Computed example of a mutant assay.
Amino acid sequence: METIQVQSESVPALGLGTWQLTGATCQETVQTALDMGYRHVDTAQAYGNERQVGTGIDAADVDREDVFLTTKLDGSNRSARRVRQSARESCHRLGTDYLDLLLIHWPNTPWMVPVSETIDAMNGLVDDGLVRNIGVSNFSPSRLDEARELSEAPIFTDQVQYHPYWDQTQLLDYCRIHDVLLTAYSPLARGGVLDDPAIVQIGNRYGKSPAQVALRWLVQQDGVAAIPKATGREHLEANLAVFDFELTDEEMERIRSPSKTKTGYHFVRSQLPF
């Protein structure tokens, strides 16, 4: 597993996303992934699966300190009191004494709780040793800049939607300048890359699937980690097999094809029951 150096921290470039994973499936997937070699697991209070993620980590043949574990504050847990209380509740559900990374899941609604209050409380958790790193999710460059200005502890990452159809060039440039990790969720555009002609053609050249090409496109970019969701052993293994080939500069440019239309279409299609 390749790693990325961010703020003196080594982070696995590929992690396991657990959005929409629940119950025994979630627990088994986390355990299988860790036993297979994953060392980066992402969850959130809003996912409702922290307990299952924690059980999966505990059941795996891996030491807790070898796992980079992330969770995110729910929208209702932004006040100073709820930040402190909910982070401890997350640790209890996850069966851990500390979190490697705690994120603000979505930007605060200013008229409810100012982001300064949330970040101050998160800094307190760092001081207490309950949280090793803090960050944000779904923040624009301007919001990320504000968060950095408000925080005593470095903002470690901005976790955002990033795939070949969704341009994050401006954010990535900002992150590289300020030593902030960009963590890509929905890296396969909710399945949209799987039948993309250009990506299929490039994959055929290397004997790789379109999903593997799209993941390689992400992790080959400096300062980018990806957290694809997968449930079956076959898909978990396939996602790991993206470090034994390298895309050319021309292929990297061909894969990058920003399109809000494609992004929206694949999001809507992924929500349909058929």
Rank of each mutant, 00 (worst) to 15 (best):
S10Y: 03
G15R: 00
G15Q: 02
W19C: 13
Q20P: 10
Q20K: 11
L21V: 06
L21P: 07
T22R: 15
E28G: 11
V30F: 02
V30L: 02
T32M: 05
A33H: 04
M36K: 05
Y38P: 01
D42E: 11
D42T: 11
A44F: 07
Q52E: 15
V53E: 00
V53F: 00
G56N: 02
A59V: 04
D61R: 10
D61Y: 03
D66I: 03
V67L: 08
F68C: 15
L69G: 11
T70Y: 01
L73Y: 07
L73N: 12
R81Q: 15
R81G: 13
V83N: 02
S86F: 09
H92W: 11
H92C: 15
R93G: 06
Y98V: 07
L99H: 06
L99K: 07
D100F: 10
L101R: 05
L102W: 02
L103A: 10
T109S: 14
P110F: 10
P110H: 08
V115L: 10
S116Q: 14
D120F: 03
L125H: 01
V126L: 08
D127H: 10
V131Q: 10
I134E: 02
V136N: 00
N138K: 04
F139N: 03
S151L: 11
D158I: 06
Q159L: 08
D167S: 06
L171Q: 03
D173G: 13
Y174D: 13
R176Q: 15
D179R: 04
L182F: 02
T183M: 08
T183R: 07
Y185A: 14
S186N: 11
P187S: 07
G191W: 04
G192E: 05
G192F: 01
V200N: 09
Q201A: 15
G203A: 01
R205Q: 13
Y206A: 05
Y206W: 05
G207N: 01
K208C: 03
Q212R: 00
V213S: 01
A214L: 00
A214S: 10
V224K: 00
A225H: 04
K229Y: 07
R233T: 14
N239K: 02
L247P: 14
D249R: 12
E250M: 12
E250K: 11
E251M: 09
M252Y: 06
E253W: 09
R254T: 15
R256Y: 09
R256K: 11
P258W: 04
H266N: 12
V268R: 12
S270A: 14
S270H: 12
P273H: 12
F274A: 15
